[in-house]
């Protein structure tokens, strides 16, 4: 038996919105410690890794570890019926072929339940080596979304370079070029959410497809902060930590000069 109840049910909805552009179907691996998901997009350019800790739920019971194969677009449709303040309960039997979603309004005056059929999905687990990233930038998640959306009007590829002057995002396309530089402001009085922290061992300059970064940025409603971790010739890690709940990480293969 698996049962998980979350008062802030909206979090589940936001997690699925942040995954469904990249992943159509995936296994939610449930165990006594929580829920994990790891999946690459269909072109194997990016990888999403979700962790939701058992302690992050108001009630969490998992008698047997198992994968729950779910079509994320169906799950997203079901979650559209979940209101902002609803309490969400997920349930699945050990040998069942479905997952049950229950949405309860805060005042307990409306209860909805939905059942989704589970799917058999080949498990994909990738060994992601521990990487000692040469540069880590932590900034406002909404500001990162803004940068990705704004620069994508000019081109498809962004060059991210971290140097002593800050982190520069550059795009060039047929229309022209654009640069946005964000500087470390930890020594000023900037409020917590707008802080930019740059931790650099050595300068890094890498190219990435903006299309994927824009999809990753759909995770911004989950949390205030995002970290970008870079090293030469290795995938970029874009990490959204969700306080007291877990994290959503995205890995993106760089574009390499031909």
């Amino acid at each position: 038996m698996f049962e998980a109840r979350l008062t802030k049910g909206e979090l589940i909805k936001k997690v699925i919105e942040a995954l469904k552009d990249l992943v159509t179907e995936a296994n939610f691996d449930i165990s006594a410690t929580g829920i994990q998901l790891q999946a690459m997009d269909s072109s194997h350019v990016s990888l999403c890794a979700l962790q939701m800790k058992a302690e992050g739920f108001d009630h969490f019971r998992c008698d047997r570890s198992m994968p729950l194969g779910i079509n994320l677009s169906s799950m997203s449709k079901v979650l559209k019926c979940c209101n902002k303040d609803d309490i969400v309960t997920l349930k699945a039997e050990d040998d069942g072929d479905s997952i049950n979603f229950m949405f309860e309004s805060k005042d307990q005056d409306k209860i909805s339940d939905f059942e989704l059929k589970l799917m058999d999905i080949d498990s994909e687990h990738f060994g992601i080596p521990d990487t000692d990233y040469k540069a880590t930038v932590t900034m406002s998640a909404s500001e990162f979304t803004r940068i990705c959306n704004d620069l994508s009007i000019l081109g498809e590829t962004v060059a991210i370079s971290v140097g002593k002057d800050g982190v520069r995002f550059s795009v060039s396309g047929e229309m022209g070029t654009g640069n946005m530089t964000v500087r470390d402001n930890t020594s000023s009085d900037t409020k917590e959410a707008d802080r930019v922290e740059i931790d650099m061992e050595e300068p890094v300059n890498l190219n990435f497809a903006l299309r994927y970064l824009k999809s990753f940025a759909k995770a911004a409603p989950l949390t205030d902060r995002v970290s970008l971790c870079l090293s030469r010739d290795v995938p970029l890690l874009v990490k959204y930590e969700i306080p007291e709940f877990g994290s959503l990480s995205y890995y993106l293969a760089p574009k390499i000069d031909d």
């Binding site: 690459m40 350019v45 990016s46 994909e124 687990h125 990738f126 290795v234 995938p235 293969a253 574009k255």
Partner: peptide, 14 residues
């Protein structure tokens, strides 16, 4: 123009 790498070069399936 830079060419898109895929992740399989970096991460093996385990």
């Amino acid at each position: 123009t830079p060419v898109q790498n895929d992740l399989d070069e970096f991460y093996a399936m385990v």
